[in-house]
Simulated scan of single mutants.
Amino acid sequence: MKEHIKIYTGTSIMVNRLSFLLNEMNIPSIIKDYKESGRLAGFGVIEGSTELFISDDNRKKANEVIKNFEKEI
C-alpha cells in the first residue's frame, strides 16, 4: 500500500485548484473535506479544513507544481 502525505490544507476552492494543477501533471491526489463531512453528519467544522494528499512516490514531481501554486496565490 502506498504512503500518502498531506501537502496542503485550506479552503475547498484552493484545494480543488491545486488538485486540478496536479492532475494536469498526471499526479493523482486525495481530497479530505472535513467541513462537508461535518455538514453531512450534522455538526460544524471550522472553515479551511480541507486537506490534499498525494502519494509519497509523487513528492518530487509535485514540488514544482506546489511552488508555482503558492506564487499564484
Rank of each mutant, 00 (worst) to 15 (best):
M1Q: 11
K2R: 09
K2F: 14
I5K: 06
K6P: 04
K6W: 05
Y8W: 14
T9N: 05
T9Y: 02
T9A: 08
T11W: 05
S12G: 08
M14R: 11
N16W: 09
N16C: 13
L18I: 08
L18C: 04
L22Y: 02
N23M: 09
N23K: 05
N23G: 13
E24G: 12
M25W: 11
I27A: 04
S29H: 07
S29E: 01
S29I: 10
I30Y: 14
I30E: 10
K32N: 11
K32G: 02
K32R: 12
Y34C: 06
Y34L: 10
Y34S: 03
K35Y: 12
K35M: 14
K35F: 13
E36F: 15
S37K: 13
S37F: 14
R39H: 11
L40G: 09
L40P: 04
A41Q: 11
G42K: 00
G42M: 01
G42S: 01
I46V: 15
E47P: 12
G48A: 05
S49F: 14
S49K: 02
T50N: 03
T50G: 07
E51L: 13
E51H: 14
L52I: 12
L52G: 02
I54M: 08
S55N: 04
S55G: 08
D56R: 14
D57H: 10
D57E: 13
R59L: 14
R59N: 03
R59K: 13
R59A: 09
K60Q: 10
K60W: 09
N63Q: 15
N63F: 12
N63L: 12
V65R: 02
V65F: 01
I66S: 01
N68C: 05
N68A: 06
F69G: 03
E70H: 00
K71A: 03
K71V: 11
I73K: 04
I73W: 02
